[in-house]
């Protein structure tokens, strides 16, 4: 017995050392989320983000949501449980649950619509937990889905602190017209997770001409008549010109920038100017 107990302690020591090493290497890896390479080096320095100014929204206008749903073939299912949402409208206390009990703030925000979507976090929890790297962070800061690789485990849905991810409980075609609204953009299959992609399919960096905007931003700018008055503004958070514009709006319209669920530590990149 003596010998085998000693034997055990040796093996247990080895095994736990192994476990610690693997676990800590895992922890090291999670410290920064891996970036997936891009051929064009100039994009590596970018960090795309969104500003949303609820006070600029017109009541009852859903042009941004409609444009997104149409251009991305987002299905519309009758059963609320199986809804697919990329960008949608909610109320202040749902978008900012941590201020739910702040009556003074709530009162001032109550009448305003709050758009919510994927925050394309700089430290995304979804990317950390995905077992196949089907969701990944591209070097320009976009958190994207590879629908070819997703196994539908929904770990990312559980990990997202914003509820921004939807799972295809049924064939998306069931909630779409035939042919689909935008034949140039693929639909998804049942069994994969999907979400806002900051219009990664568009030429948002202007690699092939003048830069295109995400459809939601474009729809808002069209409605308002100019990009300067849009409630949604898209840009590179590392670009000094964009930051200048960001600060100017804050100063001129006396607004402060909030981000959702700062406490989750994900470094979201959608700023709410309220």
């Amino acid at each position: 017995m003596e010998v085998s107990r000693r034997e055990f302690l040796k093996l247990a020591g080895l095994a736990s050392a192994g476990a610690v090493v693997t676990a800590s290497s895992g922890a090291l890896l999670t410290g920064c989320s891996p970036l997936i390479g891009m051929e064009d080096e100039s994009l590596n320095a970018k960090n795309m983000g969104m500003l949303f100014i609820p006070s600029r929204c017109e009541e009852g206008c859903h042009d941004c949501i409609d444009a997104c749903n149409k251009m991305h073939n987002v299905p519309k299912h009758d059963n609320k449980d199986h809804e697919i949402k990329w960008i949608w409208e909610t109320e202040f206390q749902h978008a900012f649950t941590e201020y739910m009990e702040n009556e003074l703030l709530k009162e001032r925000m109550e009448h305003m619509p709050f758009l919510v979507m994927c925050n394309h976090c700089a430290n995304p929890a979804c990317v950390r937990v995905c077992p196949t790297q089907a969701t990944f962070r591209r070097k320009d800061g976009l958190v994207l889905m590879d629908y070819h690789r997703c196994i539908g485990c929904r770990f990312c849905v559980a990990a997202c602190p914003y509820g921004a991810r939807s799972f295809n409980f049924k064939d998306p075609q069931k909630g779409l017209q035939n042919p689909v609204p935008n034949p140039n953009f693929p639909k998804r299959t049942k069994g994969v997770v999907e979400k806002c992609n900051f219009c990664s399919e568009r030429d948002i960096h202007g690699q092939f001409g003048s830069p295109e905007l995400p459809y939601c931003v474009e729809a808002c700018a069209n409605k308002k008549g100019s990009l300067g008055e849009s409630a949604l503004i898209f840009g590179d958070l590392k670009d000094p010109e964009f930051i200048e514009q960001f600060e100017k709006i804050q100063k001129d319209e006396k607004l402060i920038p909030l981000r959702r669920k700062e406490i989750a530590g994900t470094q979201p990149k959608v700023y709410y100017l309220v």
Binding site: I36, E39, D40, L43, F136, R138, D140, L144
Partner: peptide
């Protein structure tokens, strides 16, 4: 993979 994951 190049297009989806690398914008290449």
């Amino acid at each position: 993979d190049d297009v989806v994951r690398g914008a290449d």
